[in-house]
Design a protein around this nucleic acid. Structure first.
Length: 417
RNA sequence: GCAUGGGUGGUCGAGCGGUCAAUGGCAUCGGGCUGUAAACCCGACGGAUUAAUUUCCUACGUAGGUUCAAAUCCUACCCCAUGCA
């Protein structure tokens, strides 16, 4: 049997699942946090670090941004995003759907697609399920997303329903176009020979991950995988409707979109609690755009397997560090003479070497290294957190880990770091 | 010594009779960032006081003066820059 990706649960505790996701390019343990690399780079972090110390197995890219610059043709000409950027592990490309939502003043939305003005030069552009699939084939990521519409979190029932129904029609069009492109060989990341055991040379170490072997009788197709996206905002019946429409079409994985877009935090947890357990059990569940460390824990607890978020890199660039004792803002004067690392419990190379006082100095003087180092630490923190989450699920101690982790964050948010 | 220009809040710099505790930049302090239009955005920034866009105090080199009213006009002095002796 040929599969685009393979994913298996290896341990479960309540709704929380630990699994192994195999793409044509890397082995990914879930739950996983995927660093965001919108424009073909995880801002401020070299691939060397992502591959070695941070050991990220999969990162994101964005159709919208790469479509505008440098453009799909250039990337295709240079062999796809993997070869263009030199990132050899897995990629997941977002479809541009989220931008359709966030560029609200620059767009014109129709059944066919979205006409919008480039935020770069104001020129008129058009994105649709078909165009998005073409761009994503040129990029050649392991996982590509359907082109969806993401309504605001506070959108009313009728508006949300209309939106999700269009997203479902777009999902069908995405899949049709996706299949066509795969058949035409448009996918630049295609591998005619996918490694089927750990003995295959993947170009970099597997970092202790022992198994690459697939279930007997299963083989990877070498093609891209396509994920559908469930919308419906905070309306549970609509979430159910969207889920049905999406699973009916059938995808390699299922994403939850439209959360953390301005709604109350309780709404997100409620939606996850309702939705995740109803999603297909044999496919990865991806919560798009989330979130804070607490959010990750809470979402895993409710059955989510994959995450991405700009938070570690964006906050890192703007002076915000995540620690086991809560968030800290390196700009604060109280760190001017603080010889301690960002997080005394963090084993990352930044925490092993640099003090808060030095990082604050770098930030205050406008040195780019501040952004680089804090981004690095934040990613290390997020990835390490997910490692602990996985380990505890495998050991059956996740619910205790969750409790202790959240208590610790809480404790110190109050006490001040 | 003479001539000209100038001395403004942490700093640079606008204001040149009332609406000035004084535009703006920088610095400083604080907050925010959840499928990245973000190395970004927002707020505070003389002191005290109030329920308040309240009231008071101290401030535009120093000392006087003119005026109902002065950072703004006049006089003297001090200091700085440039030019000429």
């Amino acid at each position: 049997m040929l599969k685009n990706i393979d994913w298996n649960v290896i341990a479960q505790e309540g709704e929380a699942r630990a699994g192994i996701l195999r793409t044509r390019r890397s082995v990914i343990e879930t739950p996983v946090f995927m660093p965001v690399g919108t424009q073909g780079t995880v801002k401020g972090v070299r691939y060397e670090w992502l591959e070695s110390e941070l050991d990220a197995r999969i990162i994101l890219g964005n159709t919208y941004h790469l479509f505008l610059r440098p453009g799909a043709e250039i990337i295709r000409e240079l062999g796809g995003l993997h070869r263009f950027s030199t990132w050899n592990r897995s990629l997941l490309t977002d479809s541009g759907g989220f931008q359709v939502f966030s560029l609200t003043d620059l767009r014109k939305l129709t059944e066919e697609g979205v006409e919008f003005r480039s935020h770069i030069d104001g020129s008129k552009k058009f994105l649709s399920p078909e165009v998005s699939m073409e761009v994503q084939a040129a990029l050649g990521a392991e996982i590509v997303m359907v082109f969806d519409e993401c309504p605001p979190g506070d959108a009313g029932f009728d508006k949300t329903k209309k939106s999700l129904e269009m997203t479902a029609r777009w999902a069908k069009r995405s899949k049709d176009k996706f299949n066509q492109l795969q058949n035409e060989g448009a996918d630049t990341g295609f591998l005619s020979q996918v490694p089927s055991s750990k003995s295959q040379d993947l170009g970099e170490p597997l970092n202790g991950l022992e198994t690459w072997d697939l279930e007997p009788g299963t083989q990877l197709s070498g093609q891209q995988a396509l994920f559908g996206i469930v919308q419906g905002a905070g309306h549970l019946p609509l979430r159910r409707e969207s889920l049905d429409l999406t699973t009916e079409i059938g995808f390699d994985g299922y994403a939850i979109g439209g959360l953390s877009v301005g709604e109350e935090k309780a709404v997100m947890y409620e939606v996850l609690e309702f939705l995740a357990p109803q999603m297909p059990k044999d496919a990865p569940r991806y919560l798009m755009g989330v979130g804070t460390p607490e959010d990750l824990i809470e979402a895993v607890y409710r059955g989510v397997d994959m995450f991405d978020c700009v938070m570690p890199t964006r906050n890192g660039r703007t002076g915000g560090a995540f620690t086991s004792r809560g968030k800290l803002n390196i700009r604060n004067a109280k760190f001017a003479r603080d010889p301690e690392p960002l997080d005394a419990e963090c084993p990352c190379s930044v925490c092993r070497r640099y003090s808060r006082a030095y990082l604050r100095h770098l930030y205050q003087t406008g040195e780019m290294l501040a952004a680089i180092l804090i981004s690095h630490h934040n990613l290390a923190f997020f990835l390490d957190l997910m490692r602990k989450v996985r380990d505890s699920i495998k050991l059956g101690s996740f619910s205790r880990f969750r409790k202790e982790f959240l208590e610790k964050l809480q404790e110190n948010t109050e006490a001040d770091v």
